[in-house]
Amino acid sequence: MADRDDTAAAGDLGPVTTLATPIRLDFEFTPGVAQSRFLRGLERGRFIGQRCPKCGMVYVPSRGSCPTDGVPTTEDVELANVGTVTTYCVVNVPFAGQSIEIPYICAQVLLDGANISFMGLIQEIPADQIRMGMRVEAVWVDPDRLTPSLASVRYFRPNGEPDADYESFKEYL
């Protein structure tokens, strides 16, 4: 290549289409007062929600405010370990960071006593047998492994109760 100047050589290499810039940022998150209650509950193997003083609805987890009234939720409410699958989907796609064997069931679970469902993993049932209205219970990690984190809940599983009537949860779809 001694007979070419540097400019020509660079031109022959074609355009640069990618420039990798690794970015790593570390953050210290603050869960806040209300979520701390929820997390401390998980550490004890319990679901702790909070009630809105205005509309009476029970949120779990509460982020500290009633989303519709915009006022602080301050009254703690301990919720049951059981709930109802309001709706679900079966996940057949593997993606980064997810280690669960596919297919698996991802469901909206409405805990008894709560007015909001949250997303949970359903196990101990073949994926094609999940139903809207199925009654499920939380399966927790061993007591010595409980932490203030949702990792304390391993998954939900059918608890054998008859399915909930559609009318009882259709407002939560």
């Binding site: 709706t87 796609v93 997303m119 984190s149 990792a151």
Partner: peptide
Amino acid sequence: PFAAPLLAGAGGYFAPH
């Protein structure tokens, strides 16, 4: 660290609805 682990990806959010 304390939020619900994302269980299903974007489609998993909408598929139940």
